[in-house]
Design a protein around this nucleic acid. Structure first.
Lengths: 210, 210
DNA sequence: TATTTTATTAATCATTTGATTAAATTATTT
DNA sequence: AAATAATTTAATCAAATGATTAATAAAATA
């Protein structure tokens, strides 16, 4: 038996093992196609334990989903609301942070967006994007820059579609992109690292259009 | 009984009814979460008929998937291989056509990309993207423009990520975007119509970066 | 018209799947 | 150590699900 005080990595608790397995299986297969038995096997535990700790598949899913998205939103929110950084800085840091996160969890966007479509009302409002993004320091800076005539008017949604599309889409479309470009996982990640510096430049160029 | 010769829209055959229902249910829920009973009910037929016409859920799925993607790829392929149009023309037509198609089938990308991730090898190779895109007239023109120094060097994959990201991502992320921007379906579609002219301009500006 | 083929249905099967139960084991408290 | 509480397991349940069957209806063919 390992001591919990051991300096080397401690064993995850049963609850953590289940959460980790659930995150993996749900992310790979989506809620509807994920089987509690898959999760139990992945976690190396008895199926009954899953219900012992989390009551039901649905409850477990809600916890995983909320947890996944909150981690994500929290990081982003911190960047967008830093009042010490310029608009350009924010974009650069945002892109870089996003890509780093997605390098670790490349399947997260497709998972989240699939489930959001299947279950529109509840989750989205629970996470309160609007509050956290529209009223962020970032969006205030954007609107200011427009009013001061530094950049031509653009609907903030267009802006959001562009920046998120350029960052997130590659991960969502990676099976096709890897096939088209004959890419290994490695090469794909190298391209994404390049995008850390490219996307901010592209965004800047786009923002001056018309 | 309606005559098949009637000038008004003829009734779809049973097989068509099943295909239409399957397309709808698979697209909404994905393969794993779709139930044959859902499909049968949506089509207004007995479950046994589904197996009578298509042998199994899996076979039906493969047909729907191939059919959906081929229609899509075929349109795109035609545009990219038209040797009468310039690079700029192609981009403009591509964006416009894509957005028109996605306005009609907004859930298609998420469906296709979800299933491609779950089932990477077979489908992708069967559809043969590489052949149809990399060797297209479009890509030849792009590489020529780069060699002639008209635009700075850019990896074609970056180009593809950008243009596809800006077109497709809004549809994939629409639940979030609609929530953030307080958009109705209508307003969302208006924004997408604006993008028909905006994206080509943005792409052009981006292509001149660095 | 009689016969054969095709299409359709209700009923049912065998598995799968989410969940529960009761017993066993381990940890904690008294 | 004894008693109590928490954790884990094997076995099982009921409902859901993909698929089949046998009977019937409709259409096509001879």
């Amino acid at each position: 038996m390992k001591s919990k005080e051991s300096k080397t990595a401690i064993d995850p608790t049963t609850e953590e093992k289940i959460r980790n397995a659930a995150r993996k299986v749900f992310t790979q297969k989506g809620y509807g196609a994920a089987r509690t038995r898959d999760i139990a096997q992945e976690a190396g535990i008895n199926i009954a334990l899953l219900n012992y700790y989390f009551r039901s598949k649905e409850k477990l899913f809600e916890i995983i989903m909320l947890e996944s998205m909150q981690g994500f939103i929290h990081s982003i929110s911190g960047i967008l609301n830093d009042d010490q950084t310029s608009l350009q800085d924010k974009i650069q840091i945002l892109v870089s942070t996003y890509i780093d996160m997605l390098t670790i969890q490349p399947n997260l966007p497709l998972f989240v967006l699939s489930e959001l479509r299947a279950n529109p009302q509840e989750l989205i409002q629970k996470l309160n994007f609007k509050e956290k993004l529209i009223h962020s320091h970032f969006f205030i800076q954007l609107q200011q820059a427009i009013q001061e005539g530094k950049i031509p008017p653009i609907h903030p949604l267009h802006f959001m579609m562009n920046i998120m599309g350029m960052i997130i889409f590659p991960y969502i479309g990676s099976p096709i992109l890897k096939n088209i470009g004959d890419l290994e996982e490695n090469t794909f990640n190298t391209l994404m690292q390049q995008r850390k510096t490219l996307i901010p430049k592209w965004i800047e160029a786009m923002m001056l259009v018309k």
